[in-house]
Design a protein around this nucleic acid. Structure first.
Length: 421
RNA sequence: GUGGCUGUGGUGAAGCGGUUAACACGGCGGAUUGUGGCUCCGUUAUUCGAGGGUUCGAACCCCUUCAGUCACCCCA
């Protein structure tokens, strides 16, 4: 226990931290191009925020939150997702007073008490976008295009974009009733989950993967066919924009996102080679959320990308950059007399922006050479008694094996010349 | 939260009731602290995820627990 990370968490070790940096750079770059600015909110929030923001009947709130009471008797929850927190910050700092829409992105750890599985962890990382203050379908299209470009830019193929519209408070209740009518007689022969869904959230029945249930829900009325005029127009325009942007999509009437706050547009990007946890990105519109959180009625839309899943996908397609830890010079001091001059040289070179390192274990030259070779170091600067006496350095090119004795004071220039040549 | 499979060194693994836990890779050291990448040599698990039990005796059998993994649920 003492030497084991908690269940569902992972250390990101030097060998893979480069992969994360690569993804993070891609995110920063893309968001800049699209006009989104970074927001960093706390990793924990008041529990009520998530209860209200995500919805009390959702699985996330129901069974997956890391909630605890702090020393001031406050109920605190580690964020299971970040939309609610961004909305909170938007209201708290009156971001609505600035130029609209407010276009934000975030990246960081999220926490859900799930049973770990391939592509699912208790602490995982998301990159997400929130565009607040625009109600038209163009912004929907923008963020979907951004998500697609992000994944494509990393080199992923075999991506499938599913889209749907889940309606609004006008048309959804109407649809809900129609759906219940249709399912009424069939519920009894469906799975237990679906039976309880019937009252709580009948739309989820359409999402059930059990064969029996899928069969029964065949031919059920679909949300897309029951949209009110406004929602319908919105959805049609969105599809047109995606087509204009050359983004392929699949209309998936069964796509229902798990969070209560979604309205109109819902989408998900799948990378099926991942197996069961194949959704790498999920998002949608949340036109009621900001009001729900105490603000003025303000439309919003966003998505979240699961970074671990993206990493798994990149691994599968062999798209991860190789880690480079090479240095320009390795300094090899021999004996006590060489320590100070060697250290001095190390500091000088580093100040000049040259990547270098030295032996800290008092090893034999042979051992130091081996180490430098593995590093790998392009040059080794050997400093023994003779060199110290004459204020020189034996600089060896590890690739060619050539070496020459040069002045300690001119090593910088010498080295830079060697480096170019 | 439910179910299946798994758990031996840094890694990949052999051993499946009987004296010192095979082998390979890696790590470190060495072949007279002045020279690497090849070679050779040495060294690297008082111990088999943890705890308890059965037994004269357990890494091997039983129980519990923890963890990993896959799937369900759900989601990123």
């Amino acid at each position: 226990m003492l030497t084991t990370a908690p269940r569902g968490t992972k250390d990101i070790l030097p060998e893979t931290s480069g992969h994360w940096q690569y993804i993070e750079e891609t995110v920063y770059n893309l968001c800049r191009i699209y006009g989104y600015s970074e927001i960093r909110t706390p990793v924990f929030e008041h529990t009520e925020l998530f209860l209200r923001g995500i919805g009390e009947t959702t699985d996330i709130v129901d069974k997956e939150m890391y909630t605890f009471t702090d020393r001031g008797e406050r109920s605190i929850t580690l964020r299971p997702e970040n939309t609610a927190a961004v909305v909170r910050a938007f209201l708290e700092h009156k971001l609505y007073a600035g130029p609209q829409p407010t276009k934000l992105f975030y990246m960081g750890p999220m926490f859900r008490y799930d049973r770990p599985q391939a592509g699912r962890y208790r602490q995982f990382h998301q990159f997400g976008i929130e565009a607040i203050g625009a109600k038209g379908p163009a912004i929907d299209a923008e963020i979907i295009v951004l998500a697609v470009q992000f994944l494509r830019q990393l080199g992923l193929t075999e991506l499938k974009l599913n889209i749907n519209s889940v309606g609004c408070p006008q048309c959804r209740p109407v649809y809900r009733i129609r759906l219940q009518e249709f399912l009424k007689e069939k519920v009894s022969s469906m799975c237990g989950d679906c039976q309880s869904r019937f009252d709580r959230n009948p739309m989820r029945i359409l999402d059930c993967k059990k064969e029996a249930c899928t069969a029964h829900s065949q031919g059920a009325p679909q949300m897309v066919d029951c949209l009110c005029d406004e929602c319908k127009a919105h959805f049609e325009q969105l599809k047109g924009l995606l087509t204009a942007a050359d983004v392929d999509y699949v209309l998936n009437p069964r796509l229902v996102r798990g969070l209560d706050y979604y309205t109109k547009t819902a989408f998900e990007i799948q990378y099926s080679p991942l197996g069961a946890q194949s959704a790498v990105c999920g998002g949608g519109r949340y036109d009621g959320l900001i009001q729900e959180c105490g603000g003025q009625a303000t439309p919003g839309i966003g998505f979240a990308v699961g970074l671990e899943r993206v990493l798994l996908a990149l691994e599968k397609q062999n798209l991860l950059p190789e880690a480079k830890s090479d240095i320009d010079v390795f300094i090899a001091p021999l004996g006590d007399n060489a320590q100070a001059p060697a250290f001095r040289l190390l500091c000088q070179l580093r100040q000049a922006g040259i990547a270098c390192d030295m032996d800290f274990l008092n090893r034999s030259l042979k051992a130091q050479m081996k180490y430098a070779n593995k590093y790998p170091a392009r040059f080794v600067a050997i400093i023994g008694d003779e060199e110290v006496k004459e204020n020189k350095v034996m600089l060896k090119n590890m690739e060619t094996g050539e070496q020459q004795l040069i002045d300690m004071d001119t090593i910088q220039q010498q080295f830079k010349a060697e480096r170019k040549g």
